[in-house]
Amino acid sequence: MSEASVYRVVELIGSSSDSWEDAARNAVREASRTYQDLRVAEVVMMDVLIEDGDIIAFRTKLNLSYKSAAD
C-alpha cells in the first residue's frame, strides 16, 4: 500500500500598516514559528481597518495548509 499524505488547514488573519501582501507575509511568518512544513496559503478575504476616515491596517485572512504526520 502506498503512503498517504495528510494535510491540516488553519485559518489565520495577518495585519500590516502597509499592504495586504505584507499582512499575508506576516501571518505566514508567524505561523511558521508554530507549524512545520507549510505548504499552501489561500487568500480567503482582504479588508481594512478605518479610523477617522484613514486606513490604519490592512488585514488578510488565509487558509494555510501544512503537512501533518499521519495519525
Rank of each mutant, 00 (worst) to 15 (best):
A24W: 00
S2D: 12
V9F: 13
T34Y: 07
M1H: 04
D22P: 00
E30M: 06
E11V: 12
I55C: 07
R33I: 01
T60V: 04
E11C: 03
F58W: 14
E11N: 14
E42C: 03
F58D: 00
G14K: 09
F58Y: 15
W20D: 12
I50T: 15
S68Y: 03
W20E: 06
K61Q: 13
N26M: 10
S65A: 11
L12M: 05
Y35W: 14
V40M: 09
S17T: 12
S65P: 11
D71H: 03
D47N: 08
D22Y: 09
I50C: 09
M45K: 15
E21Q: 14
V44G: 00
S68M: 05
A69Y: 01
D22T: 03
V10E: 15
R8K: 15
L49M: 11
N26Q: 10
G14R: 08
N26D: 15
I50E: 08
V9N: 11
D71Q: 11
I56H: 02
V10K: 01
W20L: 06
V43D: 05
V28G: 07
D54F: 13
I13V: 15
E11D: 15
M1I: 08
V6E: 09
Y7K: 10
V44N: 06
T60R: 00
A57I: 07
G53Y: 08
I50P: 03
F58T: 00
S16C: 09
T60W: 04
I13G: 07
N63Q: 08
V43R: 08
A24D: 01
A24L: 02
I13L: 13
S16A: 08
D47Q: 06
M46C: 09
V9G: 03
E30W: 00
V28D: 04
L38N: 07
D47I: 02
E3D: 13
Y66N: 04
A69V: 06
R39N: 15
S32H: 05
A24C: 11
W20P: 00
T34S: 14
E3W: 04
E21M: 09
A23M: 06
E42H: 10
D52S: 10
S2M: 06
A41W: 15
E30Y: 01
Y7I: 10
L64A: 12
R25Y: 08
Q36K: 13
M45G: 10
S17C: 04
R39F: 12
I50H: 02
L62K: 01
R29Y: 11
R29Q: 14
V44A: 06
E42T: 10
D47V: 01
M46N: 06
V44W: 02
V44I: 15
R25N: 14
A41T: 03
L62A: 07
Q36I: 06
S19V: 02
A57P: 00
V10R: 02
A27D: 01
E30D: 10
A24F: 00
E3G: 02
D22F: 05
M1W: 07
A31F: 06
R25F: 05
K67W: 02
S32P: 04
E21Y: 00
A57V: 08
